[in-house]
Amino acid sequence: MTVKAGLKNMVLKGVNLSIGYKLHGGKVLHLQKELNMELRAGELVCLVGPNGSGKSTLIRTLAGLQKPLSGSVILDGYDISAMKVPEKSQLLGIILTERNTVDNITVFEIVSMGRYNYTNWLGTIREQDRKKISKAIYLVGLHGFENRFFGSLSDGEKQRTFIAKTLASEASILLLDEPIAQLDIPNRVEIMTFLKKLTHISDYSVLVSTHELDIALKIADKIWLIIPGDKMLIGTPDEVIKSGYLDELFGNELISFK
Protein backbone atom coordinates (compact mmCIF):
# COMPACT_ATOMS: atom_id res chain seq x y z
CA MET A 1 0.00 0.00 0.00
CA THR A 2 1.48 3.31 -1.02
CA VAL A 3 0.70 6.31 1.05
CA LYS A 4 1.34 9.78 -0.35
CA ALA A 5 3.26 11.89 2.09
CA GLY A 6 1.17 14.51 3.83
CA LEU A 7 -2.13 13.01 2.82
CA LYS A 8 -2.41 10.72 5.76
CA ASN A 9 -3.88 13.10 8.23
CA MET A 10 -5.90 15.15 5.80
CA VAL A 11 -9.45 15.34 7.03
CA LEU A 12 -12.58 17.25 6.19
CA LYS A 13 -14.73 18.01 9.19
CA GLY A 14 -18.15 19.51 9.69
CA VAL A 15 -18.58 21.06 13.12
CA ASN A 16 -22.10 21.88 14.35
CA LEU A 17 -23.17 22.41 10.76
CA SER A 18 -26.60 23.75 10.01
CA ILE A 19 -27.29 23.62 6.31
CA GLY A 20 -29.98 25.17 4.18
CA TYR A 21 -30.81 28.29 2.28
CA LYS A 22 -31.57 31.88 3.08
CA LEU A 23 -34.82 32.70 1.35
CA HIS A 24 -36.27 36.02 0.29
CA GLY A 25 -37.57 38.24 3.06
CA GLY A 26 -35.08 37.07 5.66
CA LYS A 27 -36.65 33.62 6.06
CA VAL A 28 -34.36 30.66 6.44
CA LEU A 29 -34.92 27.14 5.14
CA HIS A 30 -33.18 24.76 7.54
CA LEU A 31 -32.50 21.39 5.95
CA GLN A 32 -30.40 19.93 8.75
CA LYS A 33 -29.20 21.27 12.08
CA GLU A 34 -26.17 20.61 14.25
CA LEU A 35 -24.46 18.05 12.06
CA ASN A 36 -21.06 16.76 13.09
CA MET A 37 -19.08 14.56 10.77
CA GLU A 38 -15.56 13.75 9.71
CA LEU A 39 -14.19 12.38 6.46
CA ARG A 40 -10.91 10.59 7.13
CA ALA A 41 -8.11 9.59 4.82
CA GLY A 42 -8.51 6.21 3.16
CA GLU A 43 -12.24 6.12 3.69
CA LEU A 44 -15.12 5.79 1.23
CA VAL A 45 -18.25 7.36 2.66
CA CYS A 46 -21.63 7.16 0.98
CA LEU A 47 -24.09 9.91 1.78
CA VAL A 48 -27.62 8.63 1.49
CA GLY A 49 -30.99 10.02 2.36
CA PRO A 50 -34.43 10.63 0.86
CA ASN A 51 -34.93 13.23 -1.88
CA GLY A 52 -34.87 16.76 -0.60
CA SER A 53 -33.17 15.84 2.64
CA GLY A 54 -30.16 17.97 1.78
CA LYS A 55 -27.56 15.65 0.29
CA SER A 56 -26.46 18.06 -2.41
CA THR A 57 -26.63 20.98 -0.02
CA LEU A 58 -24.40 19.17 2.43
CA ILE A 59 -21.86 18.37 -0.32
CA ARG A 60 -21.91 21.96 -1.56
CA THR A 61 -21.47 23.18 2.01
CA LEU A 62 -18.59 20.80 2.73
CA ALA A 63 -17.04 21.87 -0.57
CA GLY A 64 -17.16 25.49 0.51
CA LEU A 65 -19.37 26.42 -2.44
CA GLN A 66 -22.15 27.46 -0.13
CA LYS A 67 -21.99 28.98 3.35
CA PRO A 68 -23.39 26.96 6.24
CA LEU A 69 -26.23 28.66 8.14
CA SER A 70 -24.12 28.12 11.24
CA GLY A 71 -21.17 26.03 12.30
CA SER A 72 -18.07 25.54 10.26
CA VAL A 73 -16.29 23.29 7.79
CA ILE A 74 -12.68 22.51 8.67
CA LEU A 75 -10.35 21.40 5.88
CA ASP A 76 -6.86 20.30 6.83
CA GLY A 77 -7.15 22.26 10.07
CA TYR A 78 -8.34 25.51 8.50
CA ASP A 79 -11.81 27.01 8.29
CA ILE A 80 -12.83 26.56 4.67
CA SER A 81 -14.62 29.92 4.49
CA ALA A 82 -11.25 31.63 5.01
CA MET A 83 -9.54 29.72 2.22
CA LYS A 84 -9.02 31.07 -1.27
CA VAL A 85 -10.50 29.28 -4.30
CA PRO A 86 -7.15 28.05 -5.70
CA GLU A 87 -5.96 26.75 -2.29
CA LYS A 88 -9.22 24.92 -1.79
CA SER A 89 -9.23 23.31 -5.20
CA GLN A 90 -5.75 21.91 -4.62
CA LEU A 91 -7.04 19.94 -1.64
CA LEU A 92 -10.61 19.22 -2.63
CA GLY A 93 -11.70 17.53 -5.82
CA ILE A 94 -15.35 18.25 -6.41
CA ILE A 95 -17.60 16.70 -9.03
CA LEU A 96 -21.07 18.19 -9.17
CA THR A 97 -24.09 17.11 -11.13
CA GLU A 98 -23.75 19.96 -13.63
CA ARG A 99 -23.41 18.68 -17.18
CA ASN A 100 -22.90 21.81 -19.17
CA THR A 101 -19.59 21.04 -20.78
CA VAL A 102 -18.99 21.83 -24.44
CA ASP A 103 -18.82 18.90 -26.84
CA ASN A 104 -15.78 19.84 -28.87
CA ILE A 105 -13.23 19.70 -26.09
CA THR A 106 -10.97 16.69 -25.85
CA VAL A 107 -10.54 14.33 -22.92
CA PHE A 108 -6.96 15.52 -22.59
CA GLU A 109 -8.06 19.17 -22.49
CA ILE A 110 -10.61 18.48 -19.73
CA VAL A 111 -8.22 16.44 -17.62
CA SER A 112 -5.53 19.08 -18.08
CA MET A 113 -7.89 21.56 -16.36
CA GLY A 114 -7.04 19.61 -13.23
CA ARG A 115 -3.63 21.28 -13.46
CA TYR A 116 -5.32 24.70 -13.42
CA ASN A 117 -3.80 25.77 -10.12
CA TYR A 118 -0.31 24.64 -11.05
CA THR A 119 0.14 26.05 -14.55
CA ASN A 120 1.13 29.58 -15.59
CA TRP A 121 -1.23 32.39 -16.64
CA LEU A 122 -1.72 30.90 -20.08
CA GLY A 123 -2.27 27.38 -18.77
CA THR A 124 0.81 25.97 -20.51
CA ILE A 125 1.15 22.23 -19.87
CA ARG A 126 4.70 21.37 -18.84
CA GLU A 127 6.29 17.94 -18.88
CA GLN A 128 5.48 17.25 -15.22
CA ASP A 129 1.85 18.27 -15.80
CA ARG A 130 1.66 16.04 -18.85
CA LYS A 131 2.84 13.09 -16.76
CA LYS A 132 0.20 13.66 -14.08
CA ILE A 133 -2.52 14.08 -16.73
CA SER A 134 -1.52 10.88 -18.54
CA LYS A 135 -1.37 9.00 -15.26
CA ALA A 136 -4.84 10.19 -14.25
CA ILE A 137 -6.28 9.25 -17.66
CA TYR A 138 -4.61 5.85 -17.37
CA LEU A 139 -5.95 5.29 -13.84
CA VAL A 140 -9.57 5.83 -14.81
CA GLY A 141 -9.13 3.52 -17.78
CA LEU A 142 -9.42 6.09 -20.54
CA HIS A 143 -6.00 5.43 -22.02
CA GLY A 144 -6.19 5.96 -25.77
CA PHE A 145 -9.14 8.34 -25.43
CA GLU A 146 -6.93 11.45 -25.02
CA ASN A 147 -7.97 13.06 -28.29
CA ARG A 148 -11.58 11.97 -28.25
CA PHE A 149 -14.13 14.76 -28.06
CA PHE A 150 -16.19 14.97 -24.89
CA GLY A 151 -19.40 14.91 -26.93
CA SER A 152 -18.51 11.52 -28.38
CA LEU A 153 -18.14 9.80 -24.99
CA SER A 154 -20.66 7.64 -23.19
CA ASP A 155 -22.05 8.86 -19.88
CA GLY A 156 -19.74 6.55 -17.96
CA GLU A 157 -16.71 7.77 -19.89
CA LYS A 158 -17.75 11.37 -19.29
CA GLN A 159 -17.94 10.74 -15.56
CA ARG A 160 -14.52 9.06 -15.63
CA THR A 161 -13.07 12.01 -17.52
CA PHE A 162 -14.15 14.29 -14.70
CA ILE A 163 -12.79 11.92 -12.08
CA ALA A 164 -9.47 11.93 -13.97
CA LYS A 165 -9.53 15.72 -13.91
CA THR A 166 -9.79 15.78 -10.10
CA LEU A 167 -7.06 13.12 -9.85
CA ALA A 168 -4.78 15.27 -11.99
CA SER A 169 -5.36 18.14 -9.57
CA GLU A 170 -3.65 16.13 -6.80
CA ALA A 171 -6.59 16.76 -4.50
CA SER A 172 -6.73 14.03 -1.89
CA ILE A 173 -10.31 14.53 -0.81
CA LEU A 174 -12.95 13.84 -3.43
CA LEU A 175 -16.55 14.94 -3.06
CA LEU A 176 -18.91 13.59 -5.67
CA ASP A 177 -22.56 14.54 -5.94
CA GLU A 178 -24.63 11.74 -7.52
CA PRO A 179 -21.78 10.53 -9.75
CA ILE A 180 -23.57 7.38 -10.87
CA ALA A 181 -27.14 8.62 -11.19
CA GLN A 182 -27.02 8.83 -15.01
CA LEU A 183 -25.29 5.51 -15.57
CA ASP A 184 -26.33 1.96 -16.37
CA ILE A 185 -25.78 -0.74 -13.76
CA PRO A 186 -22.37 -2.11 -14.94
CA ASN A 187 -21.00 1.45 -15.08
CA ARG A 188 -22.40 2.25 -11.63
CA VAL A 189 -20.64 -0.68 -10.07
CA GLU A 190 -17.46 0.00 -12.02
CA ILE A 191 -17.23 3.66 -10.97
CA MET A 192 -17.97 2.89 -7.33
CA THR A 193 -15.44 0.05 -7.29
CA PHE A 194 -12.89 2.39 -8.81
CA LEU A 195 -13.54 5.01 -6.12
CA LYS A 196 -13.18 2.33 -3.48
CA LYS A 197 -9.87 1.29 -5.04
CA LEU A 198 -8.65 4.87 -4.83
CA THR A 199 -9.17 4.97 -1.08
CA HIS A 200 -7.12 1.82 -0.77
CA ILE A 201 -4.20 2.41 -3.09
CA SER A 202 -3.39 5.95 -2.14
CA ASP A 203 -5.40 7.01 0.86
CA TYR A 204 -7.85 9.26 -0.88
CA SER A 205 -10.90 10.26 1.11
CA VAL A 206 -14.01 9.92 -0.98
CA LEU A 207 -17.51 11.16 -0.20
CA VAL A 208 -20.22 10.09 -2.62
CA SER A 209 -23.85 11.04 -2.43
CA THR A 210 -26.07 8.48 -4.07
CA HIS A 211 -29.54 7.03 -4.39
CA GLU A 212 -28.17 3.55 -4.98
CA LEU A 213 -28.62 2.10 -1.51
CA ASP A 214 -27.68 -1.44 -2.50
CA ILE A 215 -24.34 -0.41 -4.00
CA ALA A 216 -23.67 2.00 -1.14
CA LEU A 217 -24.31 -0.61 1.54
CA LYS A 218 -22.06 -3.12 -0.21
CA ILE A 219 -19.12 -0.91 -0.97
CA ALA A 220 -18.90 1.95 1.54
CA ASP A 221 -16.67 1.96 4.58
CA LYS A 222 -19.13 4.25 6.25
CA ILE A 223 -22.63 5.49 5.59
CA TRP A 224 -23.86 8.96 6.39
CA LEU A 225 -27.62 8.59 6.48
CA ILE A 226 -29.58 11.82 6.55
CA ILE A 227 -32.79 11.43 8.50
CA PRO A 228 -35.06 14.35 7.62
CA GLY A 229 -35.89 16.67 10.46
CA ASP A 230 -33.87 14.65 12.91
CA LYS A 231 -30.15 14.13 12.55
CA MET A 232 -27.57 12.22 10.66
CA LEU A 233 -26.81 8.62 11.39
CA ILE A 234 -23.16 7.75 10.91
CA GLY A 235 -21.95 4.20 10.94
CA THR A 236 -20.75 1.18 9.03
CA PRO A 237 -23.25 -0.32 6.57
CA ASP A 238 -24.03 -3.05 9.11
CA GLU A 239 -24.77 -0.59 11.87
CA VAL A 240 -26.97 1.46 9.57
CA ILE A 241 -28.95 -1.59 8.48
CA LYS A 242 -29.42 -2.68 12.10
CA SER A 243 -30.64 0.75 13.13
CA GLY A 244 -33.88 0.10 11.23
CA TYR A 245 -33.98 3.59 9.79
CA LEU A 246 -33.57 2.34 6.22
CA ASP A 247 -36.93 0.61 6.30
CA GLU A 248 -38.52 3.65 7.80
CA LEU A 249 -37.06 5.96 5.10
CA PHE A 250 -36.85 3.85 1.98
CA GLY A 251 -38.77 0.64 2.63
CA ASN A 252 -42.21 -0.37 1.47
CA GLU A 253 -44.10 -3.63 1.26
CA LEU A 254 -41.87 -4.77 -1.61
CA ILE A 255 -38.47 -3.84 -0.29
CA SER A 256 -37.13 -4.55 3.14
CA PHE A 257 -33.66 -4.01 4.48
CA LYS A 258 -33.86 -6.42 7.38
Partner: peptide, 23 residues
Amino acid sequence: IFLIKPMNALLLGESNAVTTGIE
Protein backbone atom coordinates in the same frame (compact mmCIF):
# COMPACT_ATOMS: atom_id res chain seq x y z
CA ILE B 1 -5.43 37.30 -23.62
CA PHE B 2 -5.06 37.08 -19.84
CA LEU B 3 -8.56 35.56 -19.75
CA ILE B 4 -7.72 32.63 -22.04
CA LYS B 5 -7.09 30.26 -19.14
CA PRO B 6 -10.22 31.02 -17.06
CA MET B 7 -12.37 31.13 -20.21
CA ASN B 8 -11.17 27.64 -21.12
CA ALA B 9 -12.26 26.51 -17.66
CA LEU B 10 -15.68 28.11 -18.27
CA LEU B 11 -16.14 25.65 -21.15
CA LEU B 12 -16.69 22.96 -18.51
CA GLY B 13 -19.76 24.83 -17.27
CA GLU B 14 -19.84 27.54 -14.64
CA SER B 15 -19.91 25.42 -11.47
CA ASN B 16 -17.34 22.99 -12.83
CA ALA B 17 -15.15 26.00 -13.57
CA VAL B 18 -15.50 27.18 -9.98
CA THR B 19 -14.52 23.78 -8.58
CA THR B 20 -11.57 23.77 -10.98
CA GLY B 21 -10.25 26.87 -9.28
CA ILE B 22 -11.35 29.97 -11.19
CA GLU B 23 -12.50 32.99 -9.25
